[in-house]
């Protein structure tokens, strides 16, 4: 029983992190039809900003990470994507690939290819024991943070003028402009929110791994894409659900697979993803608009 609770906590924690990653990708896709591969490099930038500011007090260190990543995300839109406004989806996708590789190379030039150790405040890796169940404080921080962020995002999208404009733009970008919604502003807000999610993901991932590398964001962005696609490309809820499902399945496979098959966990996981997509090519959550019923 104790082991089951332990695994459940791990599963929900990993699922929350994956949901956060998926939300960051889905946010931009809904507005711009852009699968932003360079989202992973925002996480990488966050990791290096934590490394660079490692000697500062921790609240400042975390604030630096948030500010740098949101600024990088906004700069990404302004410098790399705005010149291609109105271009087709493949053009935007290739642009994001190019940007992703360019940023990885830049990080290698500045910081080298070897991992840089990053220390974060100790409350991230304390052990919490309740009865016979003990778990890392990082698990708790991850789950609470993601719940707060998703709740905050839902409120933002429902209650604020910009939030409603974003929901309108996600449903029909052209018509939103016809009623006066400023296209560049809405896209910038989406990039800022995506940057915010990348910064939080960077903090959680670095807290887990303790290092920053130029390719740190590659694996998270792939997970985010897969989660977004199985969730249904068209719904923030779907993306978050896809992320949670992927996280839970990862932990379940880790637990149930015999040791001899454990190294092939990812193969089993993505085979499962293929089965899901064969059965429901449109994804698990089908909605007409991205922010429906958020």
């Amino acid at each position: 029983m104790t082991a089951l609770i332990q695994h459940a906590i791990d599963a929900v924690s990993l699922g929350s992190l994956y949901a956060l990653l998926a939300l960051g990708v889905a946010m931009i896709f809904g507005i711009m039809n852009l699968l932003n591969f360079a989202y992973g490099e925002l996480i990488m930038i966050g990791a290096y900003s934590l490394y660079v500011s490692r000697d500062l007090p921790w609240p400042v260190q975390l604030a630096v990470c948030l500010i740098v990543v949101i600024a990088a995300s906004l700069a990404m839109d302004r410098l790399a994507f705005r010149p291609f406004r109105g271009a087709s989806a493949p053009v935007l996708l290739v642009t994001s690939f190019a940007l992703s590789f360019a940023l990885q190379s830049l990080a290698t030039v500045i910081f080298g290819s070897r991992a840089k150790g990053v220390s974060l405040p100790s409350f991230f890796d304390e052990s919490i024991t309740i009865g016979s169940v003990s778990f890392s404080s990082l698990n708790l921080v991850t789950v609470v943070l993601v719940i707060v962020l998703v709740g905050g995002l839902a409120t933002f999208l429902r209650q604020t003028t910009v939030g409603v404009q974003m929901r309108a733009a996600a449903e029909n970008f052209t018509t939103a402009r016809l009623v006066g919604v400023k296209a560049d502003r809405v896209i910038a807000v989406a990039f800022a929110l995506s940057g915010f999610s990348a910064a939080v993901a960077a903090i959680l991932i670095v807290a887990q791994r303790g290092t920053a590398t130029p390719t740190l964001g590659v694996s998270p962005v792939l997970i985010a894409f897969v989660a977004t696609i199985i969730g249904g490309l068209g719904s923030l809820y779907g993306a978050a659900f896809g992320g949670m499902l992927l996280g839970v399945l990862t932990v379940v496979l880790q637990v149930v697979l015999p040791d001899s098959l454990a190294p092939y966990r990812e193969a089993f996981l993505y085979a499962g993803v293929i089965v899901v997509l064969l059965a429901r090519p449109q994804g698990l959550v089908v909605v007409k608009a991205l922010f429906e019923r958020v």
Partner: peptide, 13 residues
Amino acid sequence: FATLTVGENLRLP
């Protein structure tokens, strides 16, 4: 905007 409420549609402009 089908997923927005009628009020939200009207308040956009």
